[in-house]
Computed example of a mutant assay.
Amino acid sequence: MENKNKTVIKSMELLHLFLTEPSLSLNELVSRSEMPKTSVHRMASSLEEMGFLTRAADGRYQLGLIFLQFGQLVSERLDIRKIAKPIMEELCGEVDEAVQLIMRDGDEAIYVEKIEGTQTVRLFTAIGRRSPLYAGACARSILSFLPREEIDTYLQKTEFAAIASGTMTNPAELLQSIETSLQSGYTISYSELEDYTAAIGAPIFNHEGKVAAGISIAGFEARFSEDRLPYLTEKVKAAAQHISEKLGY
């Protein structure tokens, strides 16, 4: 406990009071938290400024709408994982390569599920790992299918850095890859996140027709031969379509 930020802990204690009460006055927050009034007022004001609390005309506090955004994100991620996992397991059994599921988190992609193949040597990816949206087939399958204005904004503000020998750091090259993905419905990468690896990714769409996640087959480059690519490509696209349909697309 000594190593934790006490202000953060006390702020969370205030927020927890709203789990059972729709609104609370400043005096009620002080009484229920048993904290000094000046401290409660300061923390409540900070939480209000950040959007975690809102204050009505009568001065009573209630949870801010930002929690709806967080709740929706958590719900979507849990639902997609639950829906996607059996489809990912089936895909993995068919292609015997690692199958990965990612979601967008700001300007990054986060790995939320992974199914391992039977290969002796495996890729270094784990649930919770992050990567920039421009690097790797799975992440770029999300970037490629965002609204064009979002893509343009992303390309303009992003500082591209090489992660492995094949990472795309040229905006023009990246844009060409995005255009190709839009036409073909999938994305392919070689040595972008890790040398001597390859991946084929496809976008997953939700009931609103918006890209919600990306799924990829990933393994070592030698197993992604030119004659095997059509088979792998169709498999990952079919899996992405199946998950999308389950999400109401």
Rank of each mutant, 00 (worst) to 15 (best):
Glu28Asn: 11
Ala56Trp: 00
Phe205Lys: 08
Glu226Gly: 02
Ile178Cys: 08
Arg77Met: 12
Leu175His: 12
Pro230Met: 03
Gly59His: 10
Ser165Ile: 10
Ile243Gly: 06
Leu53Lys: 07
Ala239Ser: 14
Glu150Trp: 04
Ser189Pro: 01
Leu78Ser: 14
Glu89Ile: 11
Ser25Trp: 03
Ala109Phe: 04
Arg55Phe: 00
Glu226Asp: 10
Ser25Thr: 14
Leu24Lys: 09
Leu174Ala: 02
Cys138Val: 13
Ile83Asp: 00
Ser244Gly: 13
Asn5Pro: 06
Cys92Arg: 14
Leu53Ala: 07
Met35Cys: 00
Lys85Ser: 11
Ala222Asn: 09
Gly59Pro: 13
Lys237Met: 15
Ala139Lys: 07
Val236Glu: 00
Ile151Asn: 04
Phe220His: 12
Thr125Leu: 11
Ile200His: 05
Phe205Gln: 06
Ile151Met: 09
Ile188Lys: 14
Glu90Tyr: 06
Thr180Cys: 12
Thr180Trp: 05
Leu232Pro: 07
Met168Ile: 12
Glu221Ala: 15
Thr180Ala: 12
Arg122Ala: 10
Glu245Ile: 08
Phe18Glu: 00
Asn206His: 01
Asn3Met: 08
Ser46Gly: 05
Arg104Asn: 02
Ser131Asp: 04
Arg223Leu: 09
Leu17Trp: 04
Phe52Cys: 09
Tyr190Pro: 06
Pro147Lys: 07
Gln72Lys: 15
Val99Asp: 01
Glu2Thr: 13
Ser181Pro: 09
Met12Tyr: 12
Glu221Cys: 14
Thr158Arg: 15
Ala162Lys: 15
Arg104Phe: 03
Gly248Phe: 04
Ala84Pro: 08
Ser75Met: 12
Met168Gln: 10
Gln176Arg: 11
Ala56Asn: 12
Pro171Gln: 01
Gly214Glu: 02
Glu208Ala: 15
Ser25Met: 10
Glu221Asp: 11
Leu17Met: 10
Glu192Cys: 08
Lys157Pro: 09
Asp96Val: 08
Gly106Gln: 09
Ile66Gly: 09
Arg104Ile: 02
Val74Lys: 13
Ile83Pro: 08
Ile142Ser: 04
Gly201Asn: 02
Pro36Leu: 09
Leu19Pro: 04
Ile115Leu: 00
Ser39Met: 12
Glu89Phe: 06
Thr169Asp: 02
Glu108Ile: 04
Pro36Gly: 10
Thr187Pro: 03
Phe205Ser: 04
Leu15Phe: 05
Val211Trp: 01
Ala44Gly: 08
Pro86Ile: 05
Lys237Tyr: 08
Phe160Arg: 11
Tyr61Met: 05
Ile243Ser: 12
Glu149Arg: 15
Glu159Gln: 13
Leu175Gln: 13
Glu194Ile: 10
Gly248His: 06
Arg122Trp: 01
Glu49Gly: 12
Leu229Gly: 03
Ile163His: 08
Gln72Arg: 15
Met168Leu: 14
Ala135Ile: 07
Phe145Lys: 07
Ile151His: 05
Gly185Met: 02
